[in-house]
């Protein structure tokens, strides 16, 4: 039945979605090229000038070095935030007094804009990688914290009772019932946090580091080199997608293998 529907859709649509995506990007590129002829290369460099600037960044090694610096900071802040925030959230979920004490504090932290944290980080740590990692870490922490707390609070009480019926210890209940559910709440939060980490890292580097993609953007701006600014932006976006696809998504799929079985159970139900 489903295959029939899929085949029907394939017959109605003249081409796959990729085709339409290419059309969208093509139209965007044409508008960009037309805009650059109207506004001039200082305000809006052409796609070709941007491509040349990007090739130059890659050729002289600056792109690779900046990607290494930025990527390292993203991964460091992301890993620490997920571990610390997730662990603290788990503890807060399990211990109500801790939850009531830390919860409002985390909500307050959520309201502090990352730009404020970078100012404080620069005052405390000076310019450099530590200030950047600190800023990203503080910006990310509430995300896994809230997800882990929600995870603990939404564990199926029937499963918890099953654990009690089989006299499972707290450690066994954590491993068999609570942690797998919390993990299923943490993983979507991790995807969100990774995207935010990438953006906040670049912003923090722009203001508080002498290397990395953000610093490259700051230099390009100082030199009024708009084409190179565009090239850095393309590098940021171009680097994020493969890293997300190569690291985060496979990790997600591996840990959530049991969820992918839902479709087969639907098919079984139909049978």
């Amino acid at each position: 039945m489903r295959k029939d529907i899929a085949r029907h859709h394939a017959e109605v649509l003249p081409a796959p979605r990729l085709f339409w995506a290419c059309i969208g990007f093509g139209v965007f590129g044409l508008l960009w090229a037309w805009g650059s002829t109207q506004l001039g290369p200082i305000a809006l460099p052409s796609p070709l000038e941007t491509a040349e600037a990007l090739v130059a960044l890659i050729a002289d090694g600056r792109a690779i070095a900046a990607l290494g610096d930025t990527g390292g900071r993203v991964l460091a802040a992301f890993t620490i935030a997920m571990t610390l925030g997730g662990g603290l959230g788990l503890a807060a979920g399990l211990v109500p007094p801790l939850r009531h004490a830390v919860g409002p504090l985390v909500t307050t932290l959520l309201a502090v804009p990352p730009i404020a944290w970078i100012v404080l980080a620069l005052l405390w740590f000076g310019t450099g990688g530590v200030a950047v990692v600190f800023t990203v870490l503080v910006a990310l922490l509430p995300i896994p914290f809230v997800a882990a707390v929600q995870g603990v609070l939404t564990v199926d009480p029937n499963l918890l009772e099953m654990g009690r019926a089989y006299r499972l210890s707290l450690r066994q209940r954590l491993r068999e019932i609570i942690l797998p559910h919390v993990l299923s709440c943490l993983l979507p939060a991790a995807v969100t946090a990774f995207g935010i980490a990438w953006k906040v890292t670049v912003m923090a580097e722009l203001l508080g580091a002498r290397d990395g993609i953000g610093s490259g953007l700051a230099d390009a701006r100082a030199n009024l080199d708009t084409a190179e600014s565009f090239a850095w932006i393309i590098l940021v976006v171009g680097a994020f997608l493969p890293i997300e696809a190569a690291i985060i998504r496979p990790f997600y799929r591996r840990l959530e293998a049991w969820r992918r079985t839902d479709e087969s159970s639907d098919q079984r139900a139909e049978l």
Binding site: N158, L159, Y166, P180
Partner: peptide
């Protein structure tokens, strides 16, 4: 040993692992 009305199996554990939960103690 209790068999619940809704079975209460752990969705993230295989059949074999679910049975093993009963033997943890």
């Amino acid at each position: 040993g209790m068999v619940f009305q809704e079975h209460r199996l752990l969705p993230w554990r295989t059949a074999r692992e679910n049975v093993a939960v009963g033997a943890l103690q």
